[in-house]
């Protein structure tokens, strides 16, 4: 059985709506991958995320996690243990009055023995670099720190897949960097599969693969370089590209010999130096 999340011909319709939120989505998330999903508001990104751990089941088609069909009620608990979710607002995800108790909440509910919980909580706080905050009340933490507590709570449940639905939308630039660095570490050092839904293109650039959604469909898929080099197409569906990528695109239009797949400031400096 393949270690992957697989969506096959997935359609989803909200009960009060006449429109399909997702239309014929085929998608494969392999274990160990770091995938970013971008798309305008209403393109179906969050709906898709909720289908990955069985919060929603497809109206048509099917979603399987390591071969387990989300439509089968018997599988729900197994799937939820494999697939953790992190949401936008950290304040809605924190339940306890002390950081380490909050992180322990998930494994406690899974019936994990106390010594094992202690071990998992310490490990999780270590990974998100909040060990010194274990005894602090969460409401005294910054937004970025709170979101990392929420992530630690998920890690402590030991999921293989972590789906993050705009985890940085409510954070300031420092908080955003903290969370993105944590996400990168989870993927590279802990081997967690990450699906990151985001509006920030600089964050999508960090992923190995980018999926672009528009009007309920997957419209583009590829490496960040492939995706962001298509400046015109992204703009047409209402998305941004990083400023330096757009600049490179415009300079090429003016006949300057720069690459069309520039993603970072340093790459752009390298491209431009011989020309200036």
């Amino acid at each position: 059985m393949a270690a992957e999340i697989l969506a096959e011909g997935v359609c989803y319709q909200y009960s009060q709506s006449s429109k399909m939120a997702l239309k014929d989505v085929d998608l494969r998330i392999r274990k160990g991958e770091f995938v970013a999903i971008i798309g305008p508001n209403g393109s179906g990104k969050s709906t898709l995320a909720k289908l990955f751990n069985g919060l929603f089941v497809p109206t048509k088609g099917r979603v399987t996690v390591d071969g387990l069909d989300t439509r089968d009620r018997e599988n729900v608990w197994k799937i939820r243990q494999k697939v953790g979710m992190v949401f936008q607002n950290p304040d809605n995800q924190i339940v306890a009055t002390v950081v380490e108790e909050d992180v322990a909440f998930g494994p406690e509910n899974l019936g994990v023995p106390p010594e094992e919980i202690r071990k998992r909580v310490d490990e999780a706080l270590e990974i998100v670099e909040l060990k010194d905050f274990a005894q602090k009340p969460p409401h005294l933490l910054s937004g970025g720190q709170k979101q990392r507590v929420a992530i630690a709570g998920i890690i402590a449940m030991r999921p293989d897949y972590i789906i993050m639905d705009e985890p940085t939308a409510m954070l300031d630039p420092v908080g955003r960097k903290e969370v993105i660095n944590t996400v990168k570490r989870l993927n590279r050092e802990e081997g967690k599969t990450i699906v990151l839904i985001t509006h920030f293109m600089e964050e999508a650039v960090e992923a190995a693969r980018v999926i672009v959604m528009s009007e309920g469909r997957v419209v583009m898929e590829g490496s960040p370089r492939e995706i962001f080099s298509k400046v015109g197409k992204l703009k047409a569906i209402g998305l941004d590209v990083p400023q330096v990528t757009e600049l490179a695109h415009r300079l090429r239009g003016q006949g300057l010999a720069v690459r069309n797949d520039v993603l970072t400031i340093d790459e752009m400096v390298e491209c431009l130096c011989p020309l200036l």
Binding site: Q243, L247, R250, Q254, L256
Partner: peptide, 25 residues
Amino acid sequence: VATDVLTVEEAEAEILRAARRKGHA
């Protein structure tokens, strides 16, 4: 190059100016 650039458009103009001076555009 001038560093008081705030937008993509301004950066484009400034880089083109510098590149032209070097005969690259």
